[in-house]
């Protein structure tokens, strides 16, 4: 094997980084492929299981190739309803979860960007007090304040409602702090230029701050959407009716202690369907997401 340094640059190996050997590249790829296999195989196997009949699944070993029941299984789950969760179709669960995840993500972004705007750009009495108040809520995640929050929801009659599912999860110190840090990097001259240009607080927010925060908002949206999608504890507490369940809760309810009671093929279908929306969000917003994390547009 030739030394990389003595190789002529245009020999077809010019993609190599300086100081990298071909063996190193092979090793790196082998490790990456192994990692992908480890992550992807369970998902693939779930998919395989979701295309077989319940009988096939209950009679091991499960084949490694997809079966012929793809359309039937998915149709039954999406529109037919699953027995163990009161005959609610998975379509309803997907809708519920989408509403909750979107509500949490959008709500959190709106609340936190506005509070960060107030804290960074306005001088009012008690500014630092409110800042610390928000900061301290970092120490009070849902799990810690779950009983009082539950009581409040019951008293307000918000059990089994989207509002009850969404609102308690909206307040977010993390997102507020993130926006605050970003706003602090916006030069004071830019704010003053906007003032001289006749932009009031609302115009400045709408025309300057919001477009500049675009990438941050996108990155935050991806993270928060998945956060909302995978919520478990709070939806478990605050929903009783089967048709208000989120998909994660329903998935848990579908599985019985007795194997024979569990419609495994539908469980597999539901699992597959549950991971599709987060994947879509990540894939579609990837470009923005990466830019939001690495680039500051100033």
């Amino acid at each position: 094997m030739a030394e990389p340094s003595t190789r002529p640059p245009a020999s077809g190996h010019d993609k190599l980084m300086i100081g990298q050997s071909a063996a190193g590249i092979w090793l790196a790829h082998a490790v990456l492929i192994l990692g992908i296999l480890i992550v992807a195989f369970p998902i693939y196997y779930t998919f395989v299981a979701s295309t077989h009949s319940l009988q096939t699944i209950l009679r091991p070993p499960l084949p490694l190739l997809p079966g012929d029941r793809f359309v039937e299984n998915y149709w039954e789950a999406l529109f037919g309803g699953v027995g163990r969760i009161g005959g609610v179709p998975v379509g309803t669960l997907l809708l519920n979860t989408t509403i909750v995840a979107l509500g949490i993500a959008v709500g959190k972004i709106i609340i936190s960007i506005l509070s960060a705007y107030a804290i960074v750009f306005f001088r009012f009495r008690g500014r630092m007090f409110f800042f610390w108040l928000i900061f301290i809520t970092l120490m009070l995640p849902v799990e810690v304040r779950i009983l009082p929050t539950y009581k409040v929801m019951v008293d307000l009659g918000l059990i089994d409602t989207y509002t009850g599912l969404i609102v308690p999860l909206i307040a977010s110190a993390t997102a507020t702090l993130l926006f605050r840090q970003f706003f602090l990097t916006i030069p004071g001259e830019l704010v003053e230029a906007a003032r001289v240009d006749g932009a009031g607080p609302w115009r400045f927010f709408k025309d300057i701050l919001l477009p500049l925060s675009r990438t941050n908002i996108a990155a935050l949206f991806v993270i928060l959407f998945i956060y909302g999608w995978t919520q478990y504890l709070w939806p478990l507490l605050v929903t009783n009716r089967n048709d208000m369940n989120t998909i994660v809760i329903a998935l848990k309810k579908m599985i019985s202690f007795a194997d024979a009671d569990t419609e495994w093929h539908l469980v597999m279908v539901t699992s597959m369907l549950a991971i599709v929306p987060p994947i879509l969000v990540v894939v579609l917003m990837q470009r923005w997401f990466v830019r939001g994390l690495v680039e500051t547009e100033k």
Binding site: A193, V196, I208, L212, E297
Partner: peptide
Amino acid sequence: IAMVFQNYALYPH
């Protein structure tokens, strides 16, 4: 009034 700033303060977007 109109002002020209040291760092220009152009709206980057």
